[in-house]
Design a protein around this nucleic acid. Structure first.
Length: 574
RNA sequence: CGGGACGUAGCGCAGCCUGGUAGCGCACUUCGCUGGGGGUGAAGUGGUCGGAGGUUCGAAUCCUCUCGUCCCGACCA
């Protein structure tokens, strides 16, 4: 490609509405443009990257034996009504009505469609296992689109769905997909980790997320220092304390704490450690049928955070988890938020394992402006019902018993799921087994956020000049910068010749033949992030040489023109 | 959806408080010089100030409503 014939849409100034570095650089490098909230145009330069990611994903899915197909983005409501999700999906699903007033949605995912296809096409256990995938545009009407294509409403996703006669077969394919995902992210040049994930509302027996490690990530991942244990903090179990609870050493007494509500305020005021305090959060409760009913208290050590995913799993807790309002709390307990404590609380409570382990603790007195100190379980209040409802923190014991946990941030770029029979059952997707009996298929599903990968690769690979693409997904492998292309015959002839030869040798390159000053060309190509650069200029040509510099290199090196093409092919060819 | 902020040229912003001919930088066009790190001089193009209504002799500026965007909290590839 010649730069003079291409759209180099770089800009110097950072658009004001871009928060994270990948979003800023994608805009500045002329890869995307925003059309509306969560909707982006991929400019030619950006699309090249997206396609390269897509192709690697496709190659590895094909290698794993999955079959590519393409399903409609717009889907009829009937199938979603059949699975029950038409009513449960909520506002995230974009709903449409056609001219005949029939209802459709723009697919946020394709379980219903693939299950419908498979139940119509597959009749025999002999056709199983089967794994189908597509690379296709999804639409999810996110509450809060942000960070450019990182969390867009419309995005490109690879989604795969496997079908099995039994769980063993599912587990085999799941393992193959786990391996395939690792191959994909390795080929993409990303620093990633597979981590245990919560199975969420879908249920099922197993799930891993694949995270690209980056400080800007929206997820927290817990890693063991001693083993390969890694889990989303949503999922990571906080082990119960292993020692005995210390014996009480203080009598319980009331402390005046006027206007002290937060743990931090109380800790500073009473001069105690946060680990010696308990905090009591009040959320909406649920009755036996899961309807909202009353309130329930969740008790945590002062320095710990509630894990909402864990808490939501208790049947007494209303899902989705919602904090009770100040009025609800006053009505139920008689004091404000910030003065609540477990002693004679009068509403049901679930106490975190670590909170139940503290002796002589400080907690709210259920009376405004007062806290209790020197409180002890089993003496001043009954031994509690305990559970794991907190987020793990740095330094906790690893749930696998090996080492302690460290916490890092991650961007979820893939998620694999053992679905089970949720959809095949509700949609009656069956085959005949070897005994001629009807058998409901078991399913797995496997997603990769293709467009999100582009952004996460930038989060991991950039410097103050711009993007530094991994070779595998760079929009161009090499840039050929011609100094004074329009004035120097020697430069132009050499550059044109090199361009032809390198193209013929299969190198994906862009020749910068624009009538720009050197600084502009350097700055543009560095911003865009082309990983390899050759400079052709009169200065080098006098010595029969050009200059090479890798995007991460500190210095140029002179390379003789003679044998240059072979040298480059050797260095960056496939 | 709750809380906060912002909408003025393609981009980044000033002007608004205290109403009186819409500005700056970048980008873009033409010409000159320059030519290995976003160079320079000259001359230009481009905006119904997000939209609607109101107050006023007069509104980018004041008031009301509305739409959009971004940031912080509950969901997900």
């Amino acid at each position: 490609m010649r730069a003079s014939q291409y759209l180099i849409a770089t800009v110097k100034e950072t658009p004001s509405d871009a928060e994270i570095v990948s979003h800023q650089l994608m805009l500045r490098a002329g890869m995307i443009r925003k059309l509306a909230s969560g909707l982006y145009t991929w400019l030619p330069m950006g699309l090249r990257i997206l396609r390269k990611v897509e192709n690697i994903v496709r190659e590895e899915m094909d290698r794993a034996g999955a079959l590519e197909l393409l399903m409609p983005a717009v889907q009829p409501a009937e199938l979603w009504q059949e699975s029950g999700r038409w009513d449960t999906m909520g506002a995230e699903m974009l709903r449409l009505t056609d001219r005949h007033n029939r209802e459709f949605c723009f697919g946020p995912t394709h379980e219903e469609i693939i299950t419908d296809m498979v139940r119509n096409e597959l009749r025999s256990y002999k056709q199983l296992p089967a794994n189908f995938y597509q690379i296709q545009t999804k639409f999810r009407d996110e509450r809060r689109p942000r960070f450019g294509v990182m969390r867009a409403r419309e995005f490109l996703m690879k989604d795969a769905y496997s079908f099995h006669l039994n769980d063993e077969s599912l587990k085999e394919t799941y393992a193959v997909m786990h391996e395939t995902y690792s191959r994909i992210f390795t080929r993409l040049g990303l620093d990633f980790r597979p981590v245990l994930a919560d199975t969420g509302a879908i249920g099922g027996s197993g799930s891993h997320e694949f995270h690209v490690l980056a400080d800007s990530g929206e997820d927290a991942i817990a890693f063991s220092t001693e083993s390969d244990y890694a889990a989303n903090v949503e999922k990571a179990e906080a082990l119960p304390p292993q020692d005995e609870r210390p014996a009480p050493s203080q009598d319980m007494s009331v402390a005046e704490t006027p206007q002290k509500h937060t743990i931090e305020e109380v800790v500073n005021f009473l001069k105690v450690e946060a680990t010696q305090t308990l905090k009591t959060l009040v959320v909406h409760g649920a009755d036996e049928s899961g309807e909202k009913e009353g309130v329930i208290a969740l008790v945590l050590r002062g320095d710990h955070e509630l894990n909402e995913i864990k808490a939501e799993k208790f049947s007494q807790v209303y899902a989705p988890l919602t904090m009770a309002s100040e009025e609800d709390i006053r009505a139920a307990i008689g004091c404000g938020i910030g003065s609540i404590g477990p002693v004679e609380l009068g509403i049901p409570m679930i106490v975190d394992r670590d909170a139940a382990f503290v002796a002589d603790f400080v907690c709210g007195a259920n009376e405004d402006g007062k806290h209790l100190v020197g409180v002890n379980w089993g003496r001043d209040l009954p031994e509690p019902e305990i559970a794991d409802i907190r987020n793990v923190v740095e330094g906790d014991k690893s749930p696998d018993g090996k080492g302690t946990l460290t916490i890092k941030r991650g961007i979820e770029v893939g998620h694999i799921f053992q679905l089970g029979q949720k959809y095949s059952e509700s949609m009656n997707a069956t085959v005949l087994d070897e005994n001629g009996k009807t058998a409901t298929m078991t399913m797995g599903c496997y997603g990769i956020g293709v467009s999100r990968i582009v952004a996460s690769a930038i989060e991991q690979n950039h410097d103050d000049k711009g993007i530094i693409w991994p070779d595998a997904i760079a929009p161009f492998q090499l840039t050929l910068l011609a100094m004074n292309y329009n004035k120097s015959d020697a430069v132009r002839e050499t550059a044109d010749k090199l361009y032809e030869e390198l193209t013929a040798a299969g190198i994906d390159l862009i020749l910068d033949d624009r009538n720009e000053r050197a600084g502009v060309m350097f700055a543009d190509m560095e911003l865009i992030g082309i990983p390899h650069r050759i400079v052709v200029g009169d200065r080098g040509l006098k010595n029969g040489a050009v200059e090479y510099k890798g995007r991460r290199d500190a210095d140029n090196q002179d390379i003789p023109l003679d044998g240059l093409v072979d040298w480059i092919v050797q260095k960056i060819g496939h």
